[in-house]
Simulated scan of single mutants.
Amino acid sequence: MTLKPLILLPFLATPVFAGSMTAPSPEPAPTVPVTPAPAQLGGDWTGASTGLQLGYGYADPDGAEDEPSDGAVYGLRAFYDHDFGNWVAGGGVEYDGTNIDLGDAGDLDSMAKVGGRVGYDLGRSMVYGTGGYAHATTDGGSLDAGSSDGYYVGAGMETFVADNVTVSGEVTYNEFNDFDADDLDVGATTATVGLNYRF
């Protein structure tokens, strides 16, 4: 029996003890902090709102008084809307005081409106078309023009500036042809900006 294999045995076992018996732990991967996306204001148009509006009106009478005139428009508005996803539909009321001079027909004293609107939901903003019934009253003047039923059509945009606050802009055309003075018709265009609180 030769001793050569026994002499080589310690050298063959040497690599086993050269290092640690356990594998080294891997280095943790570097982490990148995730910044949360900013919260989007608004986006859900369902609910009631009230607001104030201020603007400009231009009236073009026809008949007994045919001199156009302009003046300030100021008032209140209240709406209820429902958000259907891409589309928003609702209805509401508006009341505007004015100081537009209609000559012999007196002053266009106020315009009240009841109607609806249909809008496209852009998230924080909504663009819409609006229309419905309108009623105008006059004050003073030699014609004793009284009041008139009519209608209005228009377009507008409303945008969230805080969680429950929006600003709006609206342009409407208002037609009145049923005054007590039979030959008086008034077409009035108004442009207003509003500040609204949404519940």
Rank of each mutant, 00 (worst) to 15 (best):
G97N: 15
D180H: 03
G71E: 14
L122A: 11
L9Q: 13
T137R: 09
F11W: 12
Y197E: 11
P15E: 11
V186L: 08
D139I: 01
G123C: 03
D109E: 15
A136S: 01
A48H: 07
G97S: 10
G97I: 13
G131F: 00
L195K: 05
L52Q: 06
R77I: 07
V16H: 10
V153F: 04
D101I: 04
P61K: 06
A23G: 15
A13H: 06
R117A: 02
L108R: 00
R124D: 04
D60Y: 06
D60S: 13
D83P: 02
M157Q: 06
R124Q: 14
T159G: 02
G146C: 05
D183A: 09
T192Y: 03
D44Q: 11
D81S: 05
D149R: 07
S69W: 05
V16K: 09
A162R: 14
T46R: 02
A48W: 14
Q53W: 04
P5H: 13
S147H: 06
V171E: 04
Y80C: 02
R124T: 05
V161P: 07
L54M: 09
D182H: 05
G154T: 10
Y133W: 10
G146P: 13
A155E: 00
M126Y: 01
T189F: 12
D180I: 09
D60I: 10
G123V: 06
T98K: 02
G141Y: 12
G85P: 06
G63V: 01
G55F: 06
T130F: 08
D70Y: 09
L54Y: 12
G103A: 11
L108V: 00
P68R: 07
T130N: 07
V34Q: 15
S20A: 15
G194E: 08
N174D: 15
V16R: 13
D81T: 04
L108F: 03
D70T: 07
G156S: 07
M157E: 02
V114W: 00
G132R: 03
P5V: 06
L76T: 05
G55T: 09
G115Q: 02
W87I: 04
R77A: 14
G115N: 05
T98F: 02
A48G: 12
D60F: 01
Q40M: 13
A112I: 08
D149Y: 06
D62M: 03
A39P: 10
P38D: 15
G141Q: 05
L12N: 10
G19W: 05
L54N: 04
R124P: 01
H82F: 12
T192Q: 04
M21R: 13
